[in-house]
Nucleic acid binder design. Sequence first.
DNA 1: CTGAAAGCGCTTACAG
DNA 2: CTGAAAGCGCTTACAG
Lengths: 395, 395
Amino acid sequence: MEKATIKDVADLAGVSPSSVSRSLRGVGGVSAATTERIRAAAESLGYTVSPAAYRLATGRTGTVAVVMPYLTRWFFAELLGGAEAVVREAGLDLLLYHLGDTEIRQRYFSSGILRKRVDGVLLATLALSDPEIHALRSLDVPVCMAGTEVDGFSSVCIDDVSSARRAVQHLVNLGHERIAIIAGDPREPMHFTVPPRRRDGYLAALKAAGLPAGPDLEAQGAFTVEGGEEATVDLLARDVLPTAIFAECDEMAFGALRVLGRVGLRVPEDMSVVGFDNHPMASYFGLTTVAQDVAEQGRMIAWHLVRSAQGNGAKPVRLRAPTHLIVRATTGAPTRRTARAILAGRQPAVAGAKSDSARRSSRPARANGHDPLTRPPMARPAGNKRLATTKEKKG
Amino acid sequence: MEKATIKDVADLAGVSPSSVSRSLRGVGGVSAATTERIRAAAESLGYTVSPAAYRLATGRTGTVAVVMPYLTRWFFAELLGGAEAVVREAGLDLLLYHLGDTEIRQRYFSSGILRKRVDGVLLATLALSDPEIHALRSLDVPVCMAGTEVDGFSSVCIDDVSSARRAVQHLVNLGHERIAIIAGDPREPMHFTVPPRRRDGYLAALKAAGLPAGPDLEAQGAFTVEGGEEATVDLLARDVLPTAIFAECDEMAFGALRVLGRVGLRVPEDMSVVGFDNHPMASYFGLTTVAQDVAEQGRMIAWHLVRSAQGNGAKPVRLRAPTHLIVRATTGAPTRRTARAILAGRQPAVAGAKSDSARRSSRPARANGHDPLTRPPMARPAGNKRLATTKEKKG
DNA sequence: CTGAAAGCGCTTACAG
DNA sequence: CTGAAAGCGCTTACAG
């Protein structure tokens, strides 16, 4: 079947294209009888409005752009999934842009290419430069952000500061006094805005508790598993060891668990670990973490974007998504034995963890802290009740 | 700045819109002098061609659709990432559709809504029903598939059968004689095509080696970590236990490792495990697996789609992406002690693994098989040479 | 090499 | 309630 046009439908129904357009759009002013005839004609012809013609005539594109710095990372994939559902439900098209480096990004924003192409833009967690923000503003379409707040744009965020603070407070409450952080690399090319906020929460909790903070207790982890491993190796080579580690994201916590297992430190007996995000693998590891529903955030902001793109109530809003601490099995009260003493008694040297020789030690690696069967009283694992399934319930 | 039109540019350059169009499109027939004047005018006005007008005039949309059954699963996110890069590089727009259930999907395909909207469609691993295939064909635009082969459409696939066979052959070569499989659920709503092919490879290897196969050695895992856990619990409750497990995907292998660790079976001494995909976490677990480069597959097929969508050499092709076995630390020769004997000596009963009581056993969980320090001679771990980073080199 | 004109398929005041 | 007409911003034969 060839592509039917509005004229074909009009001819078949014996009316003018105007009437077809009116009736199909449901703007009223068409008698019930003609409406029905038109509907039947359109259906029999398999008629669909040409998006190009519609857009040209109305100036509205029926399209939103979703701009992502990463497509494969958990957070962004979840966000995209949530947003897509809402956008499609609204009958709009979703144009996907993976905008890696700043240069590409700015070229895109300022080229105006988006302006004629979309009715709205959804940007995921990017710290934007001033020229970029300016370019976005002059796009002259509603812009929404996820994970970042910018004046004049709507956004959805979690409260990274207070959430991180709560996670660290959990460690404080367990009795930890030397709490290290595995932080995101501040020189991250993507200008991630999240890491510094989570670090602020960490620092706030320490300060409130009168606990020490500083470079001795910080390591960089790049927000990846490997980065978490490197950071942990780094931490374990410090003069004084922590009794607990707060990782700014779960992936880094996974890396920490691996290294701790390798060097023979038990989790949580010898070292507590807290992550952030409740990554799908977190329950696998029994990781204590801060949970956020990222897909829901995608839905929230996409819903707002759709409304704005359709011209309704375009006042910028700042949406807050909730988080909650999930205590599983990687956190517990510190034991009297320090990690240093344990390592000293078992390993040639902590520094040895960096070399191949550590791996040839005769000690078998320990479990990575999941499902520790002896658990200190204060650690209340949520979930993990059954062996076969480990899905957490919300809330 | 208001949106400049071609007329604005023409006026500023003192020429006709025709010339502006010709010169900007680079179709020739415009003097160098005018071309330059036009270019300058366009630039000073920040002119961009209106996609809607262009599409209406030419009938070409400059857009491709990418249709995905999942957005957040590793495989699909990787594929999307690879495809996006190529599509954007080609200057085309990427319309994203997350089409969950069959009903929604078919409605979309047959509505013709895509026909007027895109110049090409890329479908990710979906087993399509005949009506769906018919609807796709009548779309009248090139359709490319990733992970599935359909007559008349271009596609990119790995050889699931021979890759799975090779993985299982690796187990056979190590001396395993009872090799179980954790397979994808055949009633999967998405009509996944991959699981049966990987199972075929598994069966072929067993048959060639004259080893037993059958229901006793099969369990369903749903292609998720939790599914892998359940399947492993199931396998461990069988009358006769395997000495090795082939999981059709890495996520299920992760689940297997977790359960094995919990019940006290060492990997690979007591049980070997092979996965499939080389998921980013595979190296973390030291998992022996079949590696495929999914992003590359996305690039390959997207490149072909772009060419087809632009009308060049539209003959359907069947692209094959390579795979390679990565032997890490979860596979080794079977020991004389059977898993059954080990379990019998250590646990109240295998069935106990299903109940909470197993978790309260006084035995600590074992390491999940990564970095086993005693390793049988035939297992040659690739990578894992250094502690801090575990990235594999290709090839 | 350049321009006038038609046409792509719609929507939307404007008349009736 | 209905239709004729203009217009959205381009491209592309068709003349010159």
